[in-house]
Amino acid sequence: MGRIRNGANGGFKGKAGSVIGSSWKSINYIKGLYKKRSKPASEEQLMQQAKFSLITAFLFPIKALLRIGYGLKRANTNTGMNMALKANINEAVVGTYPNYMLDYSKIKLSAGGLFTAGSEAISRTGTELTVTWNTTVNAVSGNTDDSVYLLVYHPASEQFLTTDVVPLRSDGEAAINIPAHITSGEGHAWIFYAERKAKEVSKSIYLGTVSFD
């Protein structure tokens, strides 16, 4: 049975006849009951489902990071994960159905107007990755205490790597430890910046690949 909130003109929660009422982020929704599909999905629908599954599988493990990277974009009606899906599904998923793949260079982990630092680069020495960036700041380029978020993905093991502690813009560099079991293949790296309270973020930068061989 549905429960009406705030009088007859308010939203309701639960099932009422052929509709279901719910609320998310203080917004009331009404939707029809699910109807079992009576005909097979079209090829276009299958293509979109395949794209969605591929990009979701990549983004889901880092949804906490996406809450920072996309947390300011329509945060009252969408989650960071939803915004990241919308930003990446048509750009980062490439190839021909059913053989879709990810173009890692086109994946965006954040969106915003905060200035990046410049001179971002990644290198490897032994069992450690080092990411460096410019520390110069001025009235429009950010603050010394901006957080710097780093991410490395190793497709062969489907594992994400990052720093133990979130570095600051003023640090100029940060190290990422390579797990002992990762001894071959390559990784893909990204960086983005966020104001100390994450009220402003930058666009993410793809740093390229790094070899683990």
Rank of each mutant, 00 (worst) to 15 (best):
R169F: 03
M101C: 09
I68P: 11
I107T: 05
I107G: 06
T183W: 00
N76L: 13
Y149H: 15
P61E: 08
T79L: 01
S184D: 08
A175Q: 15
V152F: 06
L66H: 12
A156C: 01
N88V: 05
M101D: 07
M83D: 04
S110R: 07
M101A: 15
Y153E: 01
N76W: 03
M81K: 13
A92E: 03
V140Y: 11
A57F: 00
V148A: 10
T136H: 07
M83F: 01
A111Y: 09
W133C: 03
I107Q: 05
M101S: 15
S170L: 11
I68A: 12
T135V: 14
R67M: 07
E91V: 10
S184G: 11
E158T: 10
A64W: 01
N138V: 02
D103F: 01
S123H: 03
I182C: 09
Y100F: 15
T116P: 01
I62E: 07
G142M: 06
V140I: 07
Y149W: 11
D103T: 08
V152I: 15
S147T: 05
T130C: 07
T136A: 11
G69I: 00
G126S: 07
L54Q: 06
N143T: 04
T132K: 14
P179C: 07
P61K: 02
A121W: 10
T130S: 04
G113V: 05
K86N: 15
I68W: 10
E120N: 06
A75G: 02
L85F: 02
S110C: 03
I122H: 04
V94W: 03
A64F: 03
S123A: 11
G112T: 09
N143Y: 07
N99W: 00
M83L: 12
T163G: 03
A84C: 09
S170Q: 15
F58Q: 01
S170F: 01
L151N: 05
G118T: 13
F115V: 02
L72G: 15
S184H: 03
Y97G: 00
K86H: 08
N138D: 15
G126Y: 12
Y153V: 02
S105A: 15
T125Y: 05
F60C: 05
M81A: 08
G80D: 05
S147Q: 10
L59P: 12
T136P: 00
F60L: 12
K86L: 09
L114M: 13
V148S: 07
H181L: 13
F60D: 15
D146N: 11
A156D: 13
D103H: 03
V93R: 00
A75Q: 08
Y104S: 12
T144M: 09
A87V: 02
P155D: 11
L59S: 11
V93Y: 00
T56K: 09
A87Q: 12
E173V: 07
